[in-house]
């Protein structure tokens, strides 16, 4: 049975539809990613599944318990790391952990094995106040606190936002380690390049889910030819390329622009049309999650 089962869940704030009829399920032991920008409804979904707010309509279960009627059972079974640092800044590292352990009626020793790989990195600072920690250390402490009661399900709301590329990839290594313990993880991120670290992902935008699949499956759904193009003047290239016959879309993508083409596109004609642009290069490229996201958003 699915550990997280979400059916047609909706939540509005005033006339803003934060979540608009979302359905998906997460299997036991899965690392499931919610990929999407600000305003996609990711935080609202976390707040619903951790029973902090109630939905307007729809239903969901976590570990078999209903989020509305059986919220107490859910609260003791899940770990939650909110997007905003929410530990006690004037308690020390150790005191924060002891506090969360006490709240859940466990001892630090019981969970030490689970949190050790993460906690060991901040243990030298255990007497330091949490408010005085660096961003990376706060993140590790928050994750340790979310794991203190050995939860079966872990909810992580944008744990890597604003974090540099190297620290981000270290964080994903930690999650891979937790997965080994059989913990089911639901994690959100605005960074498309992190999608490949998940077993399955949901692409989210403006309160809806655009697509759910494995990262490979999502990319396979990109059914048009894709080229990478570059030239000396990239801005001029972008504007001109869009006007050529058969071009569906053209957008900046790192060092190249990505060129999505449809029927009627002819590479030779394309080159001819842009013959006056200096240093033009064209090659086929493999689509990424981000290409798919752009395609789905523009649909």
């Amino acid at each position: 049975m699915a550990v997280i089962e979400v059916q047609n869940l909706s939540k509005s704030y005033g006339n803003v539809k934060a979540l608009d009829g979302v359905s998906f399920s997460v299997e036991r032991g899965e690392l499931f990613g919610l990929i999407g920008p600000d305003g996609a409804g990711k935080t609202t979904l976390f707040r619903l599944l951790t029973t902090l707010i109630n939905p307007d309509s729809g239903s969901a279960t976590v570990d078999g318990y209903d989020i509305r009627d059986e919220y107490l059972a859910i609260r003791s079974r899940v770990g939650y790391m909110p997007g905003r640092f929410s530990l006690y800044p004037d308690l020390s590292v150790e005191e924060n952990l002891q506090f969360f352990a006490a709240m859940f009626g466990v001892t630090m020793e019981e969970s030490y094995e689970l949190i050790a790989p993460i906690y060991k990195q901040i243990e030298p600072f255990r007497k330091r106040r949490a408010g005085k920690l660096s961003g990376g250390m706060k993140q590790k402490l928050a994750l340790s606190c979310a794991l203190i009661h050995n939860p079966g399900v872990l909810f992580l709301d944008e744990p890597t936002t604003g974090v540099d590329a190297v620290s981000r990839s270290e964080f994903w290594d930690m999650l891979a380690g937790l997965k080994e313990h059989g913990i089911t993880i639901l994690v959100s991120t605005p960074y498309m390049d992190e999608a490949s670290r998940c077993d399955r992902i949901a692409l989210c935008c403006e309160g809806r889910i655009l697509e759910i699949d494995t990262p490979e499956g999502i990319v396979q759904g990109f059914d048009r030819p894709l080229y990478g193009i570059s030239a000396k003047n990239m801005f001029a290239l972008l504007e001109r390329a869009r006007e050529v016959n058969g071009v569906v879309d053209c957008y900046p993508f790192g060092e190249k622009h990505h060129l999505v083409v449809g029927d009627g596109f002819d590479e030779k004609k394309f080159r001819n049309a842009l013959a006056d642009i200096e240093g033009i290069e064209i090659s086929t490229v493999k689509p990424t999650i981000e290409d798919m996201f752009i395609k789905l958003m523009k649909r």
């Binding site: 920008p37 990239m234 801005f235 900046p252 958003m297 523009k298």
Partner: peptide, 16 residues
């Protein structure tokens, strides 16, 4: 930061 991929690109076109 936190901006969707389409808007992010529109923004960069404006910078260009």
């Amino acid at each position: 930061g936190g901006v969707d991929p389409v808007t992010r690109r529109q923004f960069w076109e404006m910078i260009y």
